[in-house]
Design a protein around this nucleic acid. Structure first.
Lengths: 219, 219
DNA sequence: ATCATTTGAACTGTATACATTATGGTATAT
DNA sequence: ATATACCATAATGTATACAGTTCAAATGAT
């Protein structure tokens, strides 16, 4: 096998950042990562360079730290995310394959199952809702759009706002995602854009009202 | 000094790709780059990883090649670029500093000078017009938006469509950029979005009519 | 006691040696 | 003549050694 240590290092470090094991602002020294990942500095350094270029970590003095994602950064990320999601939604309505549509349908069924369980799992809901947006981006058929949306959503996951929205808004999320899906399935591009636009604005509104106060408290 | 060899490698390789010295599809082997840049493989490898993560080069089998940017990719890039430029334009109207506005004004004067010279230099025009878009993105105040727009424009430069548009459309470019600038200076966000939208659509239309036929011929 | 200086430890930056894998050519067998 | 197997070569993947820099702690002077 010998599957790329460099890629493994990237995946592992990113996983730990997203999982909150490496916290915002945390110093990532090469030696420590080498020991944790049980490999030499070369693949670790390459992984760090890539993570830096994706904007997930950044240099402070000479070493890397996990980026801080405060309320201000979340606002900035949504300024980018909203037009991109709208674009993706419109294009998906035009280009989604039958398989894309089936996958979206299946994810929505899974979300529905989790939503109406006795004790819905926020992490599970966040994962499934994230997966919905992933498929939609892929269904746009535009690899650049897909890649940029992935990066934006990645940064949002660092601050873990998704956990809040996916749980507290779970009924609205499900309904809104269904509306987006229906527009895509109906090949109605302009409606897909419209409902996505409304969805994203609702999420941002929720974040401003319910999540930012908590974030501000912490920073 | 000892300024980062790794960063130097990144800058140099990118420069050569954009300058067309390393052509689309060209194989970039580490040894060759090491000899050309007169450094060891370590910094070269790191630079290559970053360029890959930015999507400027990509792995084919085990080694890297400069990405191919065909008419299809240009269409995809504009699908992303247009909403981002519109967003940036609107935000710039709200947030541009006095210094941003002065810089844009100065660039437009330079463009005007080059445009009405006896023999306008396409490379110079492309550089100045690119600079205009750079300042506008920065004036949006959103670092993520700025970074994504940089990447998109970078990929477009690989295929060098900018050289065509900046020269053949130089009178229109100047007028349209002035309109964008005037809207930004007047702090009229929705007009800024509108004129940017029209500008980008005009450029894309020009590319489809005049440049894609040539691109398709080559591939 | 405080501040400057020096020294050493810790970390990153770079080069190089070693390991592994892919590829192309050649030789041999059918 | 063609196909297959094997070997050599060249490239990438990884580890490690070495160099240089930074930062902090300890030491010494005022």
């Amino acid at each position: 096998m010998a599957s790329n240590l460099s890629k493994m290092a990237y995946d592992e470090i990113l996983k730990k950042i997203v999982a909150g094991e490496y916290r915002q602002g945390q110093l990532l020294t090469e030696d420590k990562l080498c020991k944790e990942l049980n490999m030499s500095r070369t693949p670790v350094r390459e992984a760090l360079r890539v993570l830096e270029s994706e904007g997930v970590i950044k240099k402070v003095n000479r070493s890397y730290t996990v980026i801080y994602v405060t309320a201000k950064e979340v606002e900035f990320l949504y300024e980018v995310r909203i037009p991109l999601e709208i674009t993706a939604s419109g294009l998906a309505a035009e280009r989604a394959t039958e398989q894309d549509i089936q996958e979206m349908e299946r994810v929505l069924r899974d979300v529905e199952g989790e939503t109406f369980k006795e004790n819905p799992d926020p992490a599970k809901l966040a994962e499934l809702n994230g997966y919905f947006h992933d498929i939609l981006a892929r269904a746009s058929g535009n690899p650049f759009l897909q890649s940029y949306l992935r990066e934006v959503r990645l940064k949002l996951r660092i601050v873990r706002v998704t956990l809040f929205t996916s749980f507290d808004r779970r009924l609205d999320e499900l309904r809104e995602h269904k509306e987006i899906f229906n527009a895509v399935k109906a090949r109605d591009s302009s409606r897909a854009r419209e409902v996505m636009s409304e969805h994203e604005r609702n999420v941002l509104e929720y974040l401003r009202n319910r999540v930012f106060p908590i974030l501000l408290q912490r920073s």
